[in-house]
Design a protein around this nucleic acid. Structure first.
Lengths: 253, 253
DNA sequence: CAGTGGTCTAGACCACCAT
DNA sequence: TGGTGGTCTAGACCACTGG
């Protein structure tokens, strides 16, 4: 059953045809003209109806597939998907970046920066056994106004004997430090988020109560061969941070 | 500079050509043959070199773009991207699903299920003013073995007067309840994750210490017109849950 | 078997960028 | 102006599904 009636595609528009068709179908699905499980018109039907090429139709449909609004089955057809609402995808482009957008006068304070020798726990984190390796060690606090928001401890292998620049001291980003002070190229990272009760040290530094709930994020950065080349632990005040997640056919634009 | 030497594309293979080329270029980038900022060969060069159509080349490149390993600039060329390692994208396909994979004998226990009248806080959450609205109310505990892992409170509008089925009592999923007991179609959701100290009630139910750190996730489910049609609050034990996130050019397969 | 989506080709024109 | 990526066409063959 072809579902277009007054549906309009303007072939002479500057807006790409595939995009017009994508938006058209997206609206029909969103409005419920096409319900989950129902089949879309076939690619050839759409191509014929709108007098466009099948490749263009496919491009439009592939956008719907990317948006998880539709799924295709070879030999059967293309169908409206059922929104999955039980996923959890918390996204935050740089936890710290977020603060800069919110708080006006944020500030990074360096508590400590030095070169340290390997100890057992460090060797374990970096999965190496060379006891002579040295590491760059940083402790920083991020604050906005009079409030201290997060506390970070960072380590990276110190293999080039380059001096530590002043700009690095001001706002040392782990990937940046690695690129500057090692011969490794940081290409991937793993983060683990947990909740914790803050320790005495953290309570003092952040100005919160002992055992107050905090976010704890441990990050490991890897080179192309998956060797760990950087490690950090961050404590974020639980009363100042939250993660928000949108799921399903949520409209972004 | 064309970078292929012994590069091989098997046109008669069952593996799609675009996929072979995608993997080929991905490997070159991953190995560092092509470094961040460097230009890929042009689409025409690649098409000529491998004796394939330009559309096939474009398909391969579009895969690299999706993987964030490459970016295209009209009129200039296509370039290797610098891995972004400061994103936080925590993904967990269904928090509960996760448990089922880990713990073997998980179990959902229903503490309470009834129909309640609207009170002020509920009307606010659902952004409505009709005091006569009624709601389905659920309280459940998820456990694995003898350990209780999470505690959930769920509300949904009760508009169809359908009986509550036994299967729903066993493992009431919020989207499922909405589909069954309202005329609304749940299509999108918003979740907010925070850390908290558990209350006395939560401590008793989960068998943990008072004020122990917990994850708190509030979820609101919306219909296509962005009207709230379901709301839930979940408490997850902090000592049993963590969120892991991979970023950059992390290899999935 | 006919019909579906998946892949692929060999062209074409365009907007954009550098020179 | 020439070269780049972005869009589009009108075919083609294939693998898969269903009756």
């Amino acid at each position: 059953m072809v579902i277009q009636e007054e549906a309009s595609i303007d072939k002479s528009s500057v807006i790409p045809i595939y995009y017009q068709l994508y938006k058209l179908m997206e609206e029909q699905i969103r409005r419920g003209d096409l319900k989950p499980g129902e089949a879309l018109p076939t690619e050839n039907e759409l191509a014929t109806h709108f007098e466009i090429s099948r490749m263009t139709v496919r491009r439009a449909i592939s956008e719907l597939v990317s948006a998880d609004m539709v799924y295709a089955q070879q030999g059967r057809g293309t169908f409206v998907a059922t929104p999955k609402l039980d996923n959890i995808i918390f996204e935050l482009s740089d936890f710290n970046e977020e603060i800069r957008r919110r708080g006006l006068n944020y500030k990074t304070t360096l508590l400590e920066a030095r070169i340290v020798r390997a100890d057992e726990s460090l060797l374990k984190k970096f999965e190496i056994s060379d006891e002579h390796k040295r590491f760059l060690y940083f402790r920083t606090v991020l604050s906005a106004g009079d409030d201290r928001l997060s506390y970070e401890v960072k380590y990276t292998i110190y293999s080039k004997s380059k001096p530590i620049l002043e700009t690095e001291l001001k706002d040392p980003s782990l990937p940046g430090l690695i690129a500057a002070h090692t011969e490794y190229v940081p290409v991937s990272s793993k983060k683990v988020l947990q909740v914790a009760s803050c320790t005495e040290e953290e309570a003092l530094i952040l100005g919160i109560a002992l055992n107050a709930p905090v976010f704890l994020i441990e990050q490991t950065i890897y080179d192309p061969d998956l060797r760990p080349v950087g490690w950090s632990k961050s404590i974020y005040r639980g009363d100042r941070y939250k993660l928000t997640s949108y799921d399903g056919w949520y409209k972004k634009e």
